[in-house]
Design a protein around this nucleic acid. Sequence first.
DNA 1: CTCTTGATGCAGTGATCGTTGCTTTAGGAC
DNA 2: GTCCTAAAGCAACGATCACTGCATCAAGAG
Lengths: 188, 188
Amino acid sequence: MAGVTASTPTHTRPGGRSARVRAAVHRAVEELLASGSPDTLTIPAIAACAGVHATTVYRRWGSVGELLASVAASRFSGDFVVPDTGTLRGDLEKWVADVATDLADPDTLALIRAAIGAGESGGCACAADRHDQLVAMIEREESRGGAAPTVERAADALLGPLYYRAIFTDRPVEPGWARDLVGALVAR
Amino acid sequence: MAGVTASTPTHTRPGGRSARVRAAVHRAVEELLASGSPDTLTIPAIAACAGVHATTVYRRWGSVGELLASVAASRFSGDFVVPDTGTLRGDLEKWVADVATDLADPDTLALIRAAIGAGESGGCACAADRHDQLVAMIEREESRGGAAPTVERAADALLGPLYYRAIFTDRPVEPGWARDLVGALVAR
DNA sequence: CTCTTGATGCAGTGATCGTTGCTTTAGGAC
DNA sequence: GTCCTAAAGCAACGATCACTGCATCAAGAG
């Protein structure tokens, strides 16, 4: 054990094939989750659906729980644009409507449910990015000089109802609900 | 198939042993859920922990999902007393504090997570009774003549944040939070 | 281009799961 | 007390899962 590893580069290889396998497995998880009960979601089934050998999945992710957390993390990050309408109220209304639309998708809901069920950090992976987006909008309003509610209150008043309705009730979301929700938070 | 079944009593037998097995299995589910990852929750493990044969569990409940729904349904019903302080505000503050205390228990949280993960109706089973309690308090206030918010708005403002914080964040609940939550709903 | 090595494919193994037919126990009616 | 039958126990079976060495392939460095 003399002075080895002089250069020691990243030694990770996220090149073409790894990325392709990763994408195929993620897609297979979402596909199986969309059509079928959650207990069908097993590693051999995922591997077969992805056209990948089960060994690869076992080695890279270890368990269905970690794989679900990974899928949820990459599903709920990046593909959401924080609105910028000029006013906090407008931003929030647009954003709540977008989140509600996203949560209305049964496949998305199935992924959230599965991520919550398998692991403690599964739920956080589904909502952490949304929380950050809320923080961004509120901080922008504060730097704009306007009066903004606390992040805590905003999360309680917006993210709470959004996710509660999606997970714990089966009622569809009426149009105009986003406006009412934001109106209850941003007192005029 | 002539006129048989003249008396045909209920023919169900919820007597001593059945109730005892049911209680043992339910207790085993909560116990295993409290100590261990959710994927350890398998029917043979539950049966062994309950001192019951796995066949019985398979025959009575069928799958882990239905068993979890059953456990959640009997866990979140009956053992909660709707407060009656004389005013809606007092009732809601007491009730929110109680629900928050209940949701702060890690074992309770593990049960909710598992129920959500296994099945579509799992989440509803965890919150349906709480929703009914909210309805009871609001209807009592209305029959009392006072002005009460809609059940929708109350659920959004109270149940939403309560369950969202419990499931999607890992932040502890500060004291006084219940009062703030109710204060934001019941505008004075 | 050649070489290194991280990542994947492959086949085989032990363990556990879900299910089924039959026997035994005990709750409730008479 | 006696009888009936619903519910639980028992044992065995097939199927699937999770995991492990070894061979193979291709991404990236030189």
